[in-house]
C-alpha cells in the first residue's frame, strides 16, 4: 500500500564559530582602469563565497559586478579567512570585504569631493558614477574619478577584517553570547511510503529561509535545493557504517554510501525570505547549513505521518519502515 505523509521541520542556526573569535580579512585595490582586485582567504567550495565577495565589493564601491576580480584562498597572497564552515563566509568575509572597500573609498571620496565641490558625506557612489545626493546633476564617472586620483598621485587601497561580536561561554553554565546572528528556516515536505517494500519517495519540499538580504538569489536557491537533497538523503539512504572494533569506515565508496540521484530528489520550492537590520554585509546571513537542517526533521515527520510510526533518529531504511508498519498494524488489529 502506498501512503502519503507530510512533515514540518523548523530551525534556527547560529552563524559563525560558537563563542569563539573567528575573524576574516580582505584586501582591496581599485585600479586606474576602474577594475578592482579583491583578495580574500575564504575558500570557495562551490557555495559562491567569491561571487559574494565580488557582489559586496561592487555594491560598496559603486561599481559593477563585472569590474571586480577576486583572488581567493591562496595563502601566499590572501589574508586570514578562517574556515569555510559554520555558514560563516558570507557574514564574516562579506563584512571584511565591505570594511576593506570602505577604507579604499577614503581617498576616492576625498578626491571626488574636491573635484565636484560636494561634501564627502553627500556623495553617492553608484553604478560607475559619483553624484551629489542634493543635486544629481553634479556628477562624474568612475573613470574620471580614477583619472583625477592618478593626477593627484593617490591610490585607492584598503585592508579590512571582521570578527563577530561573541563572548567566550562560561564553562560552568554555558552562558554568554555564542553567536552574533542567527538564520531561521522552515521546511514542509511530502513523501509517499510503500508499506510493502518500505521505499520512500520524496515528492515535494517547500523550504523557506530567512537569509537577511540575499546576495545572489540564484546561489541561495541552489544552496537550498542542494541542502534539501543532502538532508533528505541523510534520512532515507545515507549511513556511515563504522566498524565498532577498528572504528574504520566500512562503506567509504559511492556504491555503498548512497546519495540521491536526479531521480530521487524531491521537487524543491525554495522560498528566500528577506529580513532587515542584521549584522552581515548589507544585512546578509549564512544559508549553507541552514539549507539542509530543517529537511531532516521534516522528512522524519513526513514518514511518521504516512505510516503512524514514531521514528526519531536517522537513517530510516526500508527494513525499518516495513517493521514499523507491521508493528503499527498489530497494535491496531
Amino acid at each position: 500500500m502506498k501512503r502519503r505523509g507530510t512533515g514540518v521541520g523548523c530551525m534556527f542556526y547560529g552563524v559563525g564559530n560558537t563563542g569563539l573569535p573567528n575573524p576574516a580579512a580582505a584586501f582591496v585595490q581599485v585600479l586606474p582602469d576602474t577594475s578592482v582586485h579583491v583578495t580574500v582567504g575564504a575558500a570557495d567550495i562551490g557555495q559562491g563565497s567569491s561571487t559574494m565577495a565580488a557582489s559586496v565589493a561592487a555594491e560598496t564601491l559603486g561599481l559593477n559586478y563585472e569590474d571586480i576580480h577576486v583572488v581567493w584562498a591562496d595563502t601566499m597572497y590572501a589574508p586570514e579567512g578562517g574556515a569555510t564552515s559554520a555558514s560563516r563566509q558570507t557574514f564574516i568575509t562579506g563584512n571584511a570585504v565591505k570594511n576593506a572597500c570602505q577604507t579604499a573609498m577614503g581617498e576616492l571620496k576625498r578626491t571626488a569631493s574636491e573635484e565636484l565641490n560636494v561634501p564627502e558625506e553627500d556623495l553617492v557612489f553608484r553604478k560607475r558614477e559619483i553624484y551629489s545626493n542634493k543635486d544629481a546633476s553634479v556628477r562624474m564617472t568612475y573613470p574620471e574619478l580614477m583619472a583625477a586620483m592618478g593626477k593627484k598621485g593617490r591610490l585607492a587601497v584598503g585592508a579590512g577584517y571582521y570578527n563577530p561580536k561573541t563572548t567566550y561561554l562560561s564553562p560552568v553554565d554555558m552562558s554568554g553570547v555564542p553567536y552574533e546572528l542567527y538564520s531561521y528556516a522552515t521546511c514542509i515536505l511530502e513523501v509517499e511510503v510503500d508499506t510493502d517494500t518500505g521505499e520512500v519517495s520524496l515528492l515535494k519540499a517547500v523550504s523557506a529561509h530567512d537569509v537577511g538580504t540575499p546576495i545572489g538569489i540564484k546561489l541561495v536557491e541552489g544552496q537550498i535545493e542542494g541542502g534539501t537533497a543532502m538532508g533528505t538523503g541523510f534520512v532515507i539512504s545515507e549511513k556511515i557504517d563504522v566498524d565498532p572494533k577498528t572504528l574504520a569506515i566500512k562503506n567509504p565508496t559511492l556504491s555503498k554510501y548512497i546519495i540521491e540521484t536526479s531521480m530521487d530528489v524531491p521537487v524543491v520550492y525554495p522560498i528566500v525570505v528577506s529580513s532587515e537590520g542584521e549584522a552581515g554585509p548589507f544585512g546578509a546571513k549564512g544559508v549553507g547549513e541552514p539549507a539542509l537542517i530543517p529537511s531532516i526533521p521534516a522528512t522524519i515527520a513526513a514518514i511518521n505521518d504516512a505510516i503512524g510510526s514514531s521514528f526519531t533518529s536517522t537513517p530510516i531504511f526500508p527494513a525499518d519502515i516495513v517493521k514499523a508498519w507491521k508493528e503499527q498494524q498489530k497494535t491496531q488489529g
Binding site: 537533497a229 540521484t261 536526479s262
Partner: peptide
C-alpha cells in the same frame, strides 16, 4: 527523460534542480 538520463551522474551541491 532528462532526470532519467542524468541519473548516472552524481552531484552533491545542487540537488539537481538547476542541472535539469
Amino acid at each position: 527523460e532528462v532526470k532519467q538520463a542524468m541519473s548516472g551522474n552524481l552531484c552533491r551541491c545542487t540537488g539537481y534542480a538547476k542541472i535539469v
